[in-house]
Nucleic acid binder design. Structure first.
Length: 599
RNA sequence: GACCUUGUAGUACAAUGGAUAGUACAAAAGUUUCCGAAGCUUUUGAUUCAGGUUCGAUUCCUGACAAGGUCGCCA
């Protein structure tokens, strides 16, 4: 997976390296830090972090209790700036970390708005996401794709990678021809402007019209005794579409002109949506420019004996030794297939950007395809090959089953965004906390909350799991949601507006459990980010931030900040609040979710 | 048929092989004379099944079962 270098040595790493050193001194045995298991200590036991001792029992030929006591004594004596105390229970060595460690961490970072970010590593990564077809508007599945892609790109940036966000637009092929034919037949020259329709929806409507007409024609043919397959092939509208595709490939001027016109309508619509949801790309590839790529690589592959030619002239690769099957890479008529284009595009992207890693955000129905793609690139020894990663995600389904455009059960991206914003408006008005906002401020707030809720909902679960979107239940502003976290942030900001932070040394004697829990959680933020980067999983960040907000809310309900026991406590808690707000902002930021000052 | 992914409370999700499996929604009961109640506190409730590896398995292996996906010219 992706290699990360983290220059900030966190407490867990410090514990590991001290334990390794202690073992070296006590038992003259070399132990790798990765073989030392550290857990957070369960709340029912005394301590912060726990070293699991069972692994050492055989090696040192001592009981876990003996090892625990020896290690504990050694470390509390020799590393007294880190370890304050220890206890051994069964095979677990529980350490209490010095309060000073937590307080120093807090003092050093509370004003650091770069906290969590890693210095650049020089690693360059391309992230490809969205990748729409141009015959219909974006839907909920695209939104999951876009939010995952945009999120992982930001997470990678934060963890020190240089990132190029990219998109391959599927702008050619039979699907767009369907919309074009239907437009010719039914539109009477109508345009998005003349009908006041968003361009992508406008073109999508003709795609629907095409299917309606095809269905009619097919039924008529079936009535004359044809099978369904025959009827679909022979329907006049389908024949016209195939002819149009041939004309497009031949470069027939009027077809090309129509194709450009309709695609541009779609792009205007897409751009509006991207802008609304806060997504962007550094480089867009169009399939009409790339679909012929890869042919020279087929030739090279034949020379290298990676590919072989069958009698009919089609070209294949045999992947049976890898547990896969034979796969075609070039048709008998010499044209490229999908995978050939992808190989070509991988090569071209590498030549253009020299990224050593490349992440493809693509649905899990293409798991097999991506596996084959990587394998072929490796066999061809393309420089991009080893850096290919597939961020695979599950489909978004409705309670009634899959979304099907033919049955009109697709949740349209623009619709759901508007719906979420509308609900956030309702909710905000009910609560009536921001009645002094201007209309502009209000609209911005509704957008931040509604869009935040949607984004969070789509990225908070493990990407590879399919998810069910229930319009009634999913739109929830309580619990494991963005508004809950945004609310926590707004509340902290309110406190900070009313109380001034003064930098000072803290009294280290009395760090309360709830105070310490938050600081400990804040301290692992960089690890949460690098883990999300390593696993290509933005949900790790979502869960982390939610837990932080939860911790803060529990703390806040029990301990007053403004009316703290004394000034020292008050300052300590203000510092905690400040860093919590900062981490919430950064964490939500990498997911593309803004956090308001008030809501 | 072969291969891939996923099976955890009523529902939706967590848990580098570690201690009594966490959280949210839903349900029930509390909680605003005091920093923002979109909050907090409490209660009820789960690892699909059968083997195996291990001091220890939700996690790893094998096999069932269930859901979804893919499998030579659609992208």
């Amino acid at each position: 997976m992706l290699t990360q270098k983290n220059y900030y040595m966190n407490v867990i790493e410090k514990i590991k390296s001290s334990v390794a050193t202690a073992i070296q001194h006590l038992y003259q045995v070399e132990v790798l830090t990765k073989d030392i298991a550290i857990n957070t200590t369960k709340p029912e036991f005394e301590g912060d972090y726990t070293v699991v001792l069972f692994a050492f029992v055989k090696q040192f030929k001592k009981t876990p209790e003996a090892i625990g006591n020896e290690l504990g004594n050694y470390l509390v004596t020799h590393n007294s700036d880190l370890f304050e105390n220890f206890n051994v229970i069964k095979g677990f060595l529980n350490f209490t970390i010095c309060s000073k460690v937590w307080l120093n961490f807090l003092a050093e970072n509370y004003h650091n708005n770069q906290f969590g970010k890693t210095q650049t590593t020089g690693n360059k990564v391309m992230v490809e996401y969205a990748s729409p077809n141009t015959n219909k508007p974006l839907h909920l599945g695209h939104l999951r794709n876009i939010f995952l892609g945009w999120g992982i790109a930001e997470i990678l940036k934060t963890t020190g990678n240089e990132v190029v966000k990219t998109c391959i637009v599927n702008d050619r092929g039979i699907h767009i021809c369907k919309s074009m034919i239907a437009w010719q037949l039914f539109a009477n020259g109508a345009t998005p402007k003349s009908t006041h329709t968003k361009g992508d929806h406008f073109v999508g409507n003709y795609y629907v019209k095409f299917n309606d007409e095809l269905k009619k024609q097919t039924e008529n043919l079936i009535a004359t005794g044809k099978t369904k397959d025959e009827a679909e092939k022979e329907a006049p509208i389908m024949k016209a579409t195939h002819q149009m595709l041939l004309d497009w490939e031949a470069g027939k001027p009027d077809v090309i002109e129509l194709w450009e016109k309709m695609n541009n309508w779609v792009y205007e619509g897409f751009d509006e949506t991207y802008k609304k949801i806060g997504s962007d790309f550094d480089k867009i590839f169009y399939e009409s420019n790339t679909y012929l790529l890869g042919k020279d690589l087929v030739k090279k592959g034949i020379d290298k004996k990676v590919f072989y030619t069958k009698e009919d002239g089609s070209v294949w690769i045999d992947l049976t030794t890898e547990g896969l099957d034979e796969k075609i890479v070039q048709r008998k008529d010499g044209t490229s297939v999908y995978i050939t284009q992808d190989i070509g595009l991988a090569e071209q992207r590498y030549n253009e950007f020299k990224a050593n890693e490349s992440i493809y955000v693509i649905g899990d129905e293409q798991n097999y395809h991506m596996k084959v793609l990587k394998l072929i690139c490796q066999k061809l020894q393309l420089p991009a090959a080893d850096g290919i990663h597939h961020l695979s995600y599950g489909m978004v389904e409705l309670p009634t089953g899959k979304m099907k455009s033919r049955e009109g059960t697709v949740v349209d991206a623009d619709d759901i965004v508007e719906e979420m914003i509308k609900i956030s408006k309702q909710k905000t008005e009910e609560l009536g906390k921001v009645n002094d906002f201007t209309t502009e401020e209000l609209n911005n707030l509704y957008r931040i909350i509604g869009l935040g809720a949607l984004k969070f909902f789509l990225v908070r679960v493990d990407p590879k799991k399919k998810m069910i979107f229930n319009p009634e239940e999913s739109i929830d502003f309580h619990g494991f949601t963005a508004p809950f976290i945004q609310y926590t942030h707004a509340r902290i900001k309110s406190i900070l507006r009313k109380n001034e932070i003064v930098t000072q040394a803290f009294n280290s004697d009395d760090l309360l459990p709830l105070e310490k829990d938050i600081i400990k959680h804040l301290e692992i933020f960089p690890s949460a980010l690098s883990e999300a980067a390593k696993e290509l999983d933005p949900s790790k960040v979502a869960i982390y931030v939610f837990n932080l907000a939860q911790l803060f809310n529990s703390f806040y309900a029990q301990h007053s900040i403004a009316q703290a026991e004394d000034e020292n406590k008050k300052q300590l808690r203000l510092h905690i609040a400040q860093l919590t707000a900062q981490v919430i902002k950064t964490g939500m930021g990498v997911l593309g979710i803004e956090v308001p000052e008030r809501m």
